[in-house]
């Protein structure tokens, strides 16, 4: 009987030993890090360019430090549940840090819970979640810009253009008749940008009249359709198109082109983001201006943050606001300065 007990305990010990061996793994010098990224929609021009920049900086970082930086990019294709699944699999794959471009900025709970459980820091970017959610855990960060700032600048651009070029006031009534192409319904950036751009124009002493607005979901093709519909409704009366982003601004331009409206009768079009195509349009004079969303700066900040979080580096010189936010400033781009921005990105290529 005693022999049996001994035998059993021996087996148990052996089993335990084996599991113990199986589980142990030594700490080693960090030679490579893995950054997981999930974007809400890879067809969003700005986000796509941001990711291109991010990749580029990752390759540069790799060269500088000799630490392999592996970037795994997932596309959530506009589905929050898909994104949740992607975050889960990225955690399983052993990503050191995960960058999340939320699909639904009001619903980051699942992702934060998963990350907290596995102690993987999260960097949210581009689509800002509410402060309460960001406070849920100390290893959550946000990289982006101040949405209202872009709205203000867009308003300023429009106001300046109106002040400079009276021909924009096609009917000469001294009132700016405008339409708005809005991003996703309920999206904070869309609301803030629309709100601030209009109020800024008014603050700058320009009288405005809103003719109509349409939701185009940040999408160029949809914007074109919506603009076509707006044109058919208001036609010549439109003097200003305030688009929440460059894609939609370009969609509006597509519609103007498609409607065969002569160039000199085009309303003023302003966008936000400063995507490559947007800048090109500014350069061509199709858009009177755009607000440059510093994608290089954001990409760099994200990468730097991600790198340090992965390698356990010091975060103190990253200018974190409240220890969580990195916000990069917008800047106004008009035809006069557009070359700087185009060159900017070319030079770094």
């Amino acid at each position: 009987m005693r022999a049996c007990v001994l035998l059993f305990s021996g087996l148990m010990a052996a089993g335990a030993g084996m599991t113990a061996v199986g589980c142990s793994g030594g700490e080693q010098e960090i030679k490579s890090i893995k950054i997981g990224v999930t974007v809400y929609d890879q067809y969003d021009t700005f986000v796509a360019q941001l990711m291109t920049e991010f990749d580029r900086y990752a390759a540069i970082k790799e060269e500088e430090t000799g630490v392999a930086v592996n970037v795994e990019v997932y596309n959530a294709a506009d589905s929050q549940s898909t994104q949740n699944g992607q975050v889960e699999s990225m955690i399983e794959e052993g990503c050191n840090v995960i960058c999340v471009n939320l699909v639904d900025r009001t619903d980051p709970t699942t992702i934060i819970d998963m990350a907290e459980k596995s102690n993987v820091p999260l960097i949210f970017f581009n689509r800002e979640l509410v402060e309460e959610d960001l406070e849920r855990w100390e290893r959550l960060y946000y990289v982006g810009a101040e949405a209202f700032e872009s709205g203000i600048m867009e308003g300023e651009l429009a106001a300046e253009a109106f002040a400079k070029d009276v021909s924009l006031d096609k009917n000469g009534d001294g009132v700016f008749q405008y339409v708005v192409l809005e991003g996703e319904a309920g999206h904070q950036d869309a609301i803030v940008r629309t709100e601030y751009s209009v109020s800024t124009i008014v603050q700058n002493g320009v009288e405005v009249e809103k003719l109509g607005y349409a939701i185009a979901n940040w999408n160029r093709a949809q914007a074109q359709t919506k603009m076509t519909q707006l044109l058919s409704e208001y036609g010549e009366a439109i003097e200003l198109v305030l688009a929440n982003n460059d894609d939609m601004a370009l969609g509006a331009i597509d519609a103007l082109k498609a409607a065969d409206i002569p160039r000199e009768e085009w309303p003023a079009v302003v966008g936000i983001d400063g995507t490559d195509v947007g800048l090109e349009a500014v350069k061509n004079g199709e858009m009177i201006g755009t607000v440059y969303n510093d994608k290089e700066g954001q990409a760099l900040a994200m990468l730097e943050l991600a790198y340090r979080l992965s390698t356990g580096g010091d975060l103190s010189d990253l200018e974190l606001l409240e220890g969580k936010y990195i916000r990069l400033p917008y800047s106004k781009v008009t035809a006069d300065v557009v070359e700087d921005y185009i060159k900017d990105s070319d030079a770094e290529d």
Binding site: S32, D55, A68, V69
Partner: peptide, 24 residues
């Protein structure tokens, strides 16, 4: 693991990455 790369300047650069991957 798909290595993030930019335009290669030449074979030696590529080899460097290969070596690093094996080391990692």
């Amino acid at each position: 693991n798909i290595v993030s790369t930019v335009e290669f300047t030449g074979l030696s650069e590529e080899c460097q990455i290969i070596r690093r991957e094996f080391e990692n």
